[in-house]
Amino acid sequence: MTRLLVLIMGALATVMFALIVLVIMPRTMLADIKAPEQLKPLSALEARGRQIYISNGCIYCHTQQVRDSNFTADVSKGLGNRPSVPADYVNDAPHLLGTMRTGPDLFNVGSRLPDQNWQLVHLYQPRALVPWSIMPAFPFLFEHKAKAGPNEKTLNLPPAYAPREGVVVVSKDAEAIVAYLLSLKHAYPAPGNDLTKEIAND
């Protein structure tokens, strides 16, 4: 029996140790972080857009983080004016940091590409605006109609990509995800309660 106890208790001890170090301790330490004043909570439309961003898997090609400028070129490539810090993400559940830059980083896309119409057309057909893009098109976020209804927004497409008849109408989902993208602006200075520095000074 002792053999089995060594195995089960030892196995549990190692994984619990890792849980404490990487999950429980950080949770307690990061609990003190407050949202910076300039970081606005998402509106209902933007929150819905965030959900669209998740359900269509944008994270598999886009990151939302600016890495430490000491050893990466993220800041010098214009992804942001400073590296991102934990306080920038306090409202995020789940996190959307991402692990791939098949497409560019979106942490500050709202400042970089603030034109709503550009974003909508780019979603409908990225290659209408960026010929070399390999981003998938999202035509299912739009409706193809003969005529737009009274309160519906139509899309201004270049002739090569416009449908032969009728109009392309922007759906609520498309509007929401663009609203979310445009809300991604983190130009404010890094907040003072930056834990990274605090720990380093310990």
């Binding site: 195995l7 089960i8 196995a11 549990l12 994984v15 619990m16 849980l19 990487l22 999950v23 950080p26 949770r27 990061l30 972080i33 934990p86 993400y89 306090v90 409202n91 995020d92 559940a93 789940p94 996190h95 940091l97």
Partner: peptide
């Protein structure tokens, strides 16, 4: 034999809906 309790623990920990922000990334 160790893999099964390990999997249960990490899978449950990973799926708890209580994490926000960078903790969510850490748990992920």
């Amino acid at each position: 034999a160790a893999s099964y309790p390990w999997f249960a623990i990490i899978f449950i920990a990973g799926n708890l809906p209580i994490f926000k922000g960078v903790e969510s990334a850490a748990v992920n």
